[in-house]
């Protein structure tokens, strides 16, 4: 007899979503989750803006809290010029946060666990912040790679290091988010599969023993909730940091 096996990676398989229409234009199940995330963000804004009360209700407080959180992050990290990039940072932050949170629900796709998605986002941030750097400072932006206050004979060593560390930014930015989300979801799946294996192998005894992986999954759920928020925050604040470097060059 063929017992259950652990398929920890099947959850990341891309299929087409939205029925026949989606199949025709290759609209994937991850895009469904993205659309869901965007719709939730817009819906929360619409609900929060419904009353525009002087003393805000719950939904309005939530939206205002998010607004001020990201706005302060921009101003504190980039400076007053950061307000120009506030809508962009807010879009990225809310999109990743909702993507992470939606992915935590069973049967929902976690699109931030796809390296293609996170790498695209990270490359966009990288290219955009580099563009801002050249737009703000012209070719003087290249001085960013020449650390000030070091003896000139060290420069041939330091400049390549600076360039490599700059170029590795999109890699670390994308892999951090991708690896965190993937690892969490794989662990969940592995422990859940382990429960099925225990039950299939030891019957009633195994079913009772499954309490251990179940408890581990409950604990993991709390951890994953933290990771979902934290990684969205890390992605947003690093975006702000890169924009700070582009605007201020130090």
């Amino acid at each position: 007899m063929a017992g259950p096996t652990i398929d920890a990676l099947g959850q990341f398989t891309l299929t087409t979503g939205l029925g026949g229409l989606g199949r025709a234009v290759n609209f994937t199940n991850s895009n469904e989750a993205m659309l869901g995330a965007a719709v939730v963000v817009v819906l929360v804004f619409a609900l929060g803006l419904r009353s525009r009360a002087l003393v805000p209700g719950r939904t309005q407080s939530l939206v205002e809290l998010l607004y001020e959180f990201v706005r302060n992050m921009c101003v504190d990290t980039i400076g007053e010029e950061g307000l120009r990039f506030f809508p962009l940072v807010f879009t990225i932050f809310s999109f990743i946060l909702l993507g992470n949170l939606i992915g935590l629900f069973p049967y929902f796709f976690a699109f931030t666990s796809h390296i293609a998605v996170t790498l695209t986002l990270a490359l966009f941030v990288f290219v955009f912040s580099t563009g801002v750097g050249f737009y703000t400072h012209g070719f003087k932006f290249l001085k960013f790679f020449v650390p000030s206050g070091v003896p000139s004979w060290l420069l041939p060593l330091l400049v390549p290091i600076e360039i490599i560390s700059y170029l590795s930014r999109p890699v670390s930015l994308s892999v951090r988010l991708f690896a965190n989300m993937t690892a969490g979801h794989v662990m969940w799946e592995v422990f859940a599969g382990f429960m099925l294996l225990l039950t299939a192998s030891f019957g009633v005894l195994g079913a009772f023993a499954s309490v251990v992986p179940l408890g581990l999954n409950v604990a993991l759920a709390a951890l994953e909730l933290l990771v979902a928020g934290l990684q969205a925050y890390v992605f947003a604040i690093l975006t702000c940091l890169y924009l700070h470097d582009a605007v201020h060059m130090h």
Binding site: L14, N26, T28, V41, F45, T91, A116, V117
Partner: peptide, 23 residues
């Protein structure tokens, strides 16, 4: 799998719309 890269294209569309709505 063509879907791996196609999802990125749709993400760009969704993000642009989200950005315009929010900003």
């Amino acid at each position: 799998n063509p879907l791996t890269l196609d999802q990125v294209g749709w993400m760009a569309v969704i993000l642009v719309v989200l950005y315009l709505l929010l900003s």
